[in-house]
């Protein structure tokens, strides 16, 4: 592990610890993400995957350790400052606003840099959203809400996307569509950290996998070696 300010990694998390009140949920998370990569955090329920994303975003109430983005330490910053640097989150609960229509939800996150997708390109990727742009956000189907939650962070110019279980509870055909979207986003140059339970889906989109257990990263498996490590992975995930 290097302690230089910049070593080519877009995101470098070292010894990240986190607490909700008295409850110590992250015990030292270490991982790196290189520009243009899709990296997953795999692990059982309650392993600390979502908390890791919240810790990176600055939402976790108390955190220690180091999170460097583009070489800059961001552990002490407010979520809105972190967002302004170019990190965007798509939360597990999707966070679609009921009092906003689809278009308002889509346009809500402010642009923080150039290079985000145009609204036309977003509607290309998600034609359903265009048809339903005047509907109340929470009147959409679960799959459409998930697409909206992803779509709205693509406009902003954020380079690093944190996607928390985008396939959870969705029909296979929608999961496939989200898989294609993630592949398309990788082609557009986005860097993605994906929290997943569905590792078959994870294997279809990711470059590398980090295994999280009890608030620590316990292993890293390149996607190419996934087949060879299947037994180990099954043991980790308890499936």
């Amino acid at each position: 592990m290097s302690d230089k300010a910049s070593d080519g990694a877009l995101l470098r998390v070292e010894g990240l610890q986190g607490w909700y009140g008295e409850s110590h949920v992250l015990h030292g998370i270490d991982f790196t993400v290189n520009p243009g990569e899709v990296v997953t955090l795999l692990g059982r329920n309650g392993a600390g995957k979502t908390s890791t994303l919240l810790g990176i975003m600055g939402i976790l109430p108390r955190r220690e350790g180091s999170v460097r983005f583009n070489g800059n330490e961001i552990i002490g910053l407010q979520p809105r400052q972190i967002a302004r640097l170019g990190i965007a989150i798509c939360p597990e609960e999707r966070g679609i606003f009921a009092s906003l229509n689809v278009e308002e939800n889509l346009m809500l996150p402010p642009r923080i840099a150039d290079g985000g997708l145009s609204v036309e390109r977003i509607f290309d990727l998600f034609p359903n959203l265009k048809e339903r742009r005047r509907s109340q956000g929470t009147k959409l189907s679960g799959g459409e809400q998930q697409m909206l939650a992803i779509a709205r962070i693509l406009r902003t110019g954020a380079k690093l996307l944190l996607l928390d279980e985008p396939t959870e509870g969705l029909a296979p055909v929608i999961v496939q569509q989200i898989g294609r979207t993630i592949a398309a986003l990788k082609n557009e140059g986005f860097t993605i950290v994906l929290v997943e339970q569905n590792f078959r889906f994870a294997a279809s989109v990711a470059d590398r996998h980090y295994v999280v257990d009890q608030g620590r990263v316990i292993d890293m498996i390149p996607n190419a070696d996934l087949q060879a490590n299947m037994d180990k992975l099954h043991a980790y995930l308890g499936v």
Partner: peptide, 10 residues
């Protein structure tokens, strides 16, 4: 509705 998420959008 959700001040935390709105803050996390910058």
């Amino acid at each position: 509705e959700n001040p935390v998420l709105v803050g996390a959008f910058g």
